[in-house]
Design a protein around this nucleic acid. Structure first.
Length: 875
RNA sequence: GAGAUAUUAGCUCAGUUGGUUUAGAGCGCUUGCUUGACAGGCAAGAGGUCACAGGUUCAAAUCCCGUAUAUCUCACCA
């Protein structure tokens, strides 16, 4: 049957994925083999596939498929996380379009809508990931709000509370006025922005006409001022010590205080203090017992306490207050100013520091063992430079704000009693019993308990992921957790090293007394070729599904991987996928060639084929060893590049070209079988990278005879003959010289040539290989130099190709070429001799090194004299 | 502001404890080819004072110091 000259992935990929699923090849249950386990970094249920997912999941799939073929019990657990803020925002938005607000319907009904939304939209990214070919055990699919995981999250909260790590308190938190919730320090992204510095003067109380001028970037917060502060040693303000000042527009009298916190050289050296809306001011407020006036509503608009501009948004108020200050004669000047502003990672809204009651988790004692296991490399980081970043964060770790003012998530299991006391317990019933025992005098009914309205940070469930996906929190001795934990490797991005990686290690140490994974492979960030981060707003990210349609999934996987050394950002360019597609096409055509041969079992194996078969066997094992080594170091793009060259150059350009029979002639059985076996084992090594085409080629070669490649045994490195590789490489150098002479002298490929070899230092060469690849009629050895011949030197041997009438040699070009080579060798020789004539080199350098230099000198001298002789003859 | 990491061909990157013929790869580029698997191809070729300035050493892309630039992390002064 005719096979298309172009590989068409669309007809092949879907077929094999369905087939593998049907056969249950991705299913894993504990058995006697060694496990190789990966838990997926759960994408958001709100997520859609982007290039980062392609990178991350391709890498995981490569590792898991390779492990499966190496005989491990490979288990890749898929799942999604509930993404409190993002999902709740989606649901709120959806309800808003129906004219419904959260308050209208209350918590229970809202949750019903949210679950409906999740059922409808939450699986999109998983379907998209299947298109990528990923070999997860889909029977193990988990969601962070599944019952078993939710129960575990609550149990962990209760456990930490009882251990005294979790507490509730009033703190200045990062408030997201759009999402209407507090977020953790890690969820705040600081960006430099162009803003303005306003100089505003405050009248000294009781001294008409006397003022002190402050500088601020947030004039609207003047309405919440409760002090002005200067440096105690500032000469300019000594006379004002102990006085009070009047807040502009409000004429509120507030103290003028002195504290070393103020930098006298910044602005005017005088600082307005708004304890409710700035973390530093808050500290000063506590120190000097200042009033705290909260002038903002939760959504960032001004409230009644502001006294002015009530109801206006904080940014509008910032503009609106300027004319008021100007009119009152308070505004001194305005300067342009660049400062850093914190934004919410989730909503991109400007963070408002806000005082509120939140739940916190004390991280210090959790951090200590987690730091140690990374420093001791029980958990290894790839690249290991991230150990520094990790250590720095761990050593300065702050308490974690874990409550979120949302409904979608794990509701905090804290119950308030009528006497304002709080009881923490896994269920209301349990809390009730504890409360009864503790406060019998209250004569409580269960309905007197009021549960905390807030939910937990999504990361508070994610940090348990490697344990909870195996239900190891509720059943610490169950078979799955004992078999699969610790997992083998985690693949993730460096930007969540604190959010997630660090906390998973803490959780692993705390509840299992064991690391959650042995290795962490940090991928880089996918950027466009202009080094810009790929983002929706820039529109510079290709749609991965479109890419897979255009180049095939295997092509996209290769394109993604080609330029992604661990930890380095990668500049993604569609042309890399094109390279991947072209590679598929190359493989496809190698298959077409082999399948097109007629096999004749009476035919003997030619000498050149014998050499090719033996050489390729050695070469294959040599490269296989390189690839094994690359995998140990997680250098996957190196491993793939080695495969690319092994297939394209060694297999196609040399092996196949050598064994290929002349047109319409048959091939002998042994060579044919060897060609098939070689292509087959190349496909096996390539399979983890390109699962679809390799399965297709495997079946085209063997039918059903050898089963499916996805579960076949990965070839293992065998000892190989290094000498045959060397001799072959030398032969190829000769081939390249002959081809160069053909090109430079316009000798047609069909013109058959003779070759004479003059050995000056006997060295093995594969004459049959040269003959086949260069279309020679004969190869002779000779003892004398040939006149009337083109000639060249490789290593120390001379080669001659006699002229014939048909050849028009280009003497000038040949001379120029020779001269260039002579110049190079002379320069080289000079540098070598300079070393050798240096007595301290000969004395101090190891004997081996000196010997190498002497050999270089000899070789260069010999070759130089041969070349000089040749150039003389051409004159 | 503090720290970390980097800077090698037009682009993206290798170069493993200093010595392996005066630096390698892929892509791109130039030239020539419909050569009976593949033009999504074949063949040949060009292209780098290893960011800059010092130092250590018999010997430096590789080690040390400084400068510049870039990226990241942490902190943050209104």
């Amino acid at each position: 049957m005719e096979i298309s000259s172009r590989y068409n992935p669309s007809q092949i990929e879907g077929k094999w994925y369905a087939y593998w699923m049907d056969k249950g090849y991705f299913r894993s249950v504990p058995d006697g083999r060694k496990p190789f386990t990966i838990v997926i970094p759960p994408p958001n249920v709100t997520g859609v596939l982007h290039m980062g997912h392609i990178l991350n999941n391709t890498i995981q799939d490569i590792l898991i498929r390779r492990a499966r073929m190496q005989g491990y019990n490979a288990c890749w657990v898929p799942g999604t996380d509930h993404a409190s803020i993002a999902t709740e925002a989606k649901v709120v938005h959806m309800l808003k379009e129906k004219g419904i607000t959260k308050k209208d319907i209350g918590r229970e009904e809202f949750m019903e809508y949210a679950w409906q939304w999740k059922e409808k939209h939450g699986g999109i990214i998983l379907q998209q990931l299947k298109r990528l070919g990923i070999s997860c055990d889909w029977d193990r699919l988990k969601f962070t709000m599944d019952d078993s995981l939710s129960e575990s999250v609550i149990a962990v909260f209760v456990d930490l509370y009882r251990k005294g790590f979790i507490y509730r308190g009033v703190r200045m938190v990062n408030w997201d006025p759009k999402a209407l919730t507090a977020v953790s320090d890690e969820e705040v992204v600081y960006k430099e922005v162009q803003s303005k510095l306003y100089y505003v003067r405050y009248q000294i109380e009781g001294s008409e006409g006397e003022y002190i001028t402050i500088a601020t970037t947030r004039p609207e917060t003047i309405l919440g001022d409760t002090a002005v502060c200067v440096h105690p040693d500032d000469e300019r303000y000594q006379h004002l010590k102990g006085r009070r000042v009047l807040v502009p527009l409000l004429n509120r009298s507030v103290p003028l205080i002195a504290d070393e916190y103020v930098d006298p050289v910044f602005g005017t050296g005088a600082l307005k203090i708004t304890p409710a809306h700035d973390i530093n001011d808050y500290q000063l407020g506590i120190k000097y017992k200042l009033d705290t006036i909260n002038i903002f509503n939760d959504d960032g608009s001004l409230n009644e306490s502001a006294g002015l501009l009530v109801g206006m948004d904080r940014f509008q108020a910032r503009e609106a207050i300027i004319p008021l200050l100007e009119a009152g004669g308070y505004l001194v000047k305005v300067e342009d100013y660049v400062n850093k502003i914190g934004y919410s990672e989730r909503t991109q809204e400007v963070i408002e520091p806000k005082l509120s009651v939140q739940w916190f988790c004390d991280m210090q004692s959790l951090a200590a063992p987690a730091l140690e296991v990374v420093m001791k490399e029980e958990v290894r980081f790839f690249p290991d430079k991230l150990k520094n970043t990790y250590a720095h964060w761990m050593e300065n770790v702050k308490d974690w704000c874990i409550s979120r003012q949302l409904w979608w998530g794990h509701r905090i299991p804290a119950y308030y009693l009528p006497n304002q006391e709080v009881v923490v317990a896994a269920t209301q019933e349990e809390a009730y019993h504890i409360a009864l025992e503790k406060y019998p005098e209250l004569k409580l009914r269960i309905s007197d308990l009021r549960q905390d309205e807030d939910v937990l940070d999504t990361w508070f469930s994610s940090w348990l992921w490697p344990i909870t996906v195996f239900d190891g929190m509720r059943y610490p001795e169950n078979e799955d957790i004992r078999y699969y934990y610790p997992t083998s490797v985690l693949i993730t991005a460096p930007d969540i090293i604190f959010f997630w990686v660090a906390r998973m290690i803490m959780a692993g140490m705390e509840w299992r007394g064991e690391i959650p994974f042995r290795d962490v492979y940090f991928t880089g960030m996918v950027r466009d070729k202009l080094r810009r981060k790929m983002s929706k707003s820039l529109g510079n990210s290709p749609d991965p599904i479109d890419l897979m349609d255009t180049y095939g999934t295997d092509g996209v996987r290769m394109g993604m991987l080609l330029s992604s050394p661990a930890g380095n950002d990668l500049m993604f360019d569609e042309s890399l996928c094109e390279q991947g597609r072209n590679f598929n096409n190359k493989i496809w055509n190698a298959l077409r060639l082999i399948k097109g041969w007629k096999v004749d079992d009476k035919q003997a194996m030619p000498a050149h084929a014998r050499i090719a078969v033996d050489w390729f066997d050695a070469r294959f094992n040599q490269v296989l060893a390189e690839i094994d080594d690359a995998f140990l170091k997680y250098r996957l793009s190196d491993a793939l590049m080695s495969m690319y060259k092994l297939i394209w150059d060694d297999f196609c350009a040399y092996f196949l070209e050598i064994v290929k029979p002349p047109y319409q002639q048959a091939i002998d059985t042994e060579t044919y079988q060897s060609a098939c076996a070689n292509l087959g084992r190349l496909m096996q090594v390539l399979h983890p990278f390109m699962p679809f085409i390799t399965e297709e080629v495997w079946h085209a070669l063997y039918g059903e005879e050898k089963g499916d490649i996805v579960v076949s045994s990965m070839p293992q490195t065998q000892a190989y003959d290094a000498k045959i590789i060397h001799t072959f490489a030398f032969s190829i150098e000769v081939v390249e010289q002959i081809r160069r002479l053909r090109t430079e002298n316009n000798i047609a490929p069909k013109q058959r040539l003779d070759l004479f070899i003059l050995y000056h230092d006997k060295e093995d060469v594969f004459k049959e290989v040269i003959s086949k690849l260069c279309n020679l009629s004969a190869v002779y050895e000779t003892n004398s130099k040939r006149e009337d011949a083109l000639s060249f030197v490789v290593h120390k041997q001379e080669f001659f190709i006699p002229f014939s009438n048909a050849i028009n040699i280009n003497v000038e070009e040949e001379k120029a070429k020779l001269q260039e080579e002579i110049n190079y060798l002379q320069g080289f020789l000079t540098s070598v001799e300079k070393k050798l004539s240096n007595p301290s080199f000969v004395q101090n350098a190891p004997e081996k090194v000196v010997d190498v230099e002497r050999k270089k000198q000899n070789d260069a001298r010999q070759k130089l004299s041969l070349l000089q002789e040749k150039i003389e003859r051409l004159k």
